[in-house]
Design a protein around this nucleic acid. Structure first.
Lengths: 240, 240
DNA sequence: CGCCGTCTTGCGTAAACCCGCAGCTTGTTG
DNA sequence: CAACAAGCTGCGGGTTTACGCAAGACGGCG
């Protein structure tokens, strides 16, 4: 058995290396990549079926890399190992995991024990292992309670990118008014109307900009989500 | 000599611990904190004069912590050790360093050697050591070439927070029109007018929102900068 | 001191945005 | 099938933005 480790940070990389050796005696080879691009290439060359992947790497982030890897070989097992459980990441990951694929999401703050368990469960037993904290987000995100619909999230991204209502309408094939409806829905859920109890009418917010910031502060959005969205936008712009 | 290490990640923390021991034989005690809040407390209790500080920690980030520490004891020497050289961080740090204080900014990607050298230079020789890459940003940021004025940066933050023109005017004691002037200046510098060469008039951007995103993608802003700005905003709102 | 560049401010306009009202299309449920 | 909730869309109007034009204000500088 071969395991590929894709991770920026040399310290974490060698820690992972040890953890893999300790948890998987049946693993005879460990290879390492220090960014997403290299990771993709190695995965292809070695036909890796077992990958431990960091999200958030400078060069090309884990989600991008995982996406192309899964596109080529959907049965690949990937354990995501990340510092954060931002909703943006969680959403990003669950958007790209192929049907029935075995994968995992473990936080870096987890104990050695938990990491090793996750490694065995995913790579040997083909089980999905999702960190409890992350799991919570996923639930909330899928169930509607307090969570955001896909269309709400979509429009959030669109205004975050700086599109006008008209442009959004065109992109999503909606009428202007519908776009604005969704915006209002979004403003509602983000609770963007004034900072709590402040009744001065002068301290008003620009809802559109405020919504984006609030989303950021709540980790609904983060840098990597923006980056991806921007790339998609550019693509769309190309295609007229 | 006593050294205080403030760092989230246990791996990095122990790495730093070793590096300090190796670089500074004159150091007899090393204490560790795993977030900003704990760091501040330990610094106070131990009257630490030598600190290695991570930026970007979950609980309370390094800039906040450094600010309060420096407020109490401005002669404290702090070495910032960070993964990133976002302009937002660099700007954040240089805004809080007291006159004549010895401090350093080293990237985590630097070699062992460089880290050790920096430790000695700052703690023993009271020199400032700024990573070359970071230095570049600082220059650009101070010299006007291609960089952003303080007032431009200020208004960038204000729209990022989601304030209306009117609110900004009030906050910064300007007329509405002046605020809008500065905005235009900002839009200019960020080059927010249409995505390169696209002459379809439909693909237009909402300049205000777009500016924020572009700033984010260029790392002029980041999460921690937003967080701080938001806190300041709330303070201001309190004070009517 | 007069010239000049930078910054501030007011006026005015066209466009974009926020949003209530109301008619329609759907999918769901008893 | 009737009833109802949920989402799409057009209309209309009050606000906010973006920005050209032009008149001061302030700070060098020859």
């Amino acid at each position: 058995m071969k395991v590929l480790i894709v991770e920026d940070d040399p310290l974490h990389r060698s820690y992972l290396h040890e953890a893999v050796n300790a948890a998987l005696p049946e693993c005879d080879t460990v290879i390492e990549a220090e960014n997403g691009t290299a990771g993709e290439k190695l995965a292809r060359d070695h036909k890796s079926a077992h990958i431990v992947m960091d999200l958030q790497m400078a060069n090309r982030n884990g989600i991008e890399a995982a996406r192309t890897i899964w596109k080529e070989r959907p049965e690949t097992r990937i354990l995501f190992w990340s510092n954060y459980s931002d909703e943006a990441y969680v959403r990003g990951v669950s958007r790209i995991v192929p049907d029935g694929a075995a994968y995992g999401y473990v936080l870096k703050s987890a104990s050695d024990e938990r990491l090793k368990l996750a490694l065995r469960s995913i790579f040997i037993e083909s089980q999905c292992v999702i960190d409890r904290e992350v799991r919570g987000l996923q639930q909330k995100s899928l169930g509607q309670t307090n969570g955001f619909t896909d269309s709400e999230y979509e429009i959030l991204v669109d205004i975050a990118l700086g599109l006008t209502d008209r442009a959004i309408a065109k992109r999503r094939s909606l009428s202007l008014r519908s776009v604005q409806n969704r915006l209002q829905q979004l403003y509602d859920k983000l609770d963007v109307y004034q900072s709590a109890g402040d009744d001065h009418e002068d301290g008003r917010f620009n809802l559109r900009a405020r919504a984006v910031t609030v989303a950021f502060l709540r980790k609904l959005l983060n840098y990597s989500a923006l980056e991806r969205a921007e790339a998609e936008l550019q693509e769309w712009l190309e295609g007229k």
